[in-house]
Design a protein around this nucleic acid. Structure first.
Lengths: 147, 147
DNA sequence: ACGCTATTTGCATGAGTTGGTAACTAGCAA
DNA sequence: TTGCTAGTTACCAACTCATGCAAATAGCGT
């Protein structure tokens, strides 16, 4: 995603207005690496701008996605997550806490894919599941839990 | 997934009963490579057993998944798909018609993954998007559509 | 055949998201 | 500053996909 300042210009060029609500969303998403859901952004936004509506959050996220500024990420279950990182990257999801991190895989093209049967793939989504460092520490796999 | 006959035994061993509804589901899933949704299975099942409830479909699919006989597949949008193929494999989705095919990728372990940041991945789901052969023929990419 | 218990089913509910309308607000160009 | 127009909000409805609940039903071991 471009910077809030650049988005200001980009929105105006598209004939879209620069409302405080949108500017707030720009700021909340700028450099945000936690892959928030619409609801999570709504909670954050409400703290800073009481009265902002969830409808507006969805609307602005949709606009940003349509402009290619953010990416909608489905991680299998739960609400959609939004990612301002639009680099060619993939995701790893913590099975304990549900956190999503960006990962970079540079040799996907080297994969040997069998069974395509005439299928022409043109993109790939790769989602790793595992345990994040924090959860690995608080839930050591080979140690009994202290209840 | 094991054969319907073997599932009969497996269910009984678990103290689960062998109802006609479940047997029907076994048959509908046996060798099924189209990755049906619960709803799609419900439609098929209703033709053969009018009155069967969608609730039962969900319940049985859940049981089969819990026993490791089938796999639930999320393809990003739309309902979950169910796959009786429990080999280590991945999927390719047609962006035109939504069909899902199984593909086999044998060198996933060779992927170079950056940015893990302490994350310990233990599995990977890979979903390719592209165009299936049928849709490629009916919608040729470099040819104008006849409206 | 009996009876315990799993199962089925309809109905209701839930999460997540989108849609419609209407009234009020506010950006921004002239 | 004015005015056109887009945006926000509230309220509500709808929608998809999935699950919880309770009463009725039916396996299946005995």
């Amino acid at each position: 995603m471009r910077s809030p300042a650049e988005l200001t210009t980009a929105f105006r060029e598209r004939g879209l207005k620069l409302t405080p609500q949108r500017q707030l969303l720009f700021r909340l998403l700028d450099g945000n690496a936690v892959h928030p859901s619409a609801e999570a952004l709504y909670v954050k936004a409400s703290e800073l701008m009481p009265g902002i509506s969830l409808r507006t959050i969805y609307h602005t996220l949709h606009d940003l996605a349509a402009m290619g500024e953010i990416q909608m990420v489905s991680v299998g279950s739960g609400p959609a997550r939004f990612d301002p990182n639009i680099d060619d990257h993939h995701h790893v999801v913590c099975v304990e806490c549900g956190d999503v991190h960006d990962v970079y895989v540079n040799n996907i093209a080297d994969l040997r894919v069998d069974g395509l049967d005439g299928f022409q793939p043109d993109s790939a989504r790769l989602v790793f599941s595992g345990t994040c460092q924090r959860c690995a520490i608080s839930n050591p796999p080979y140690k009994e839990q202290s209840t």
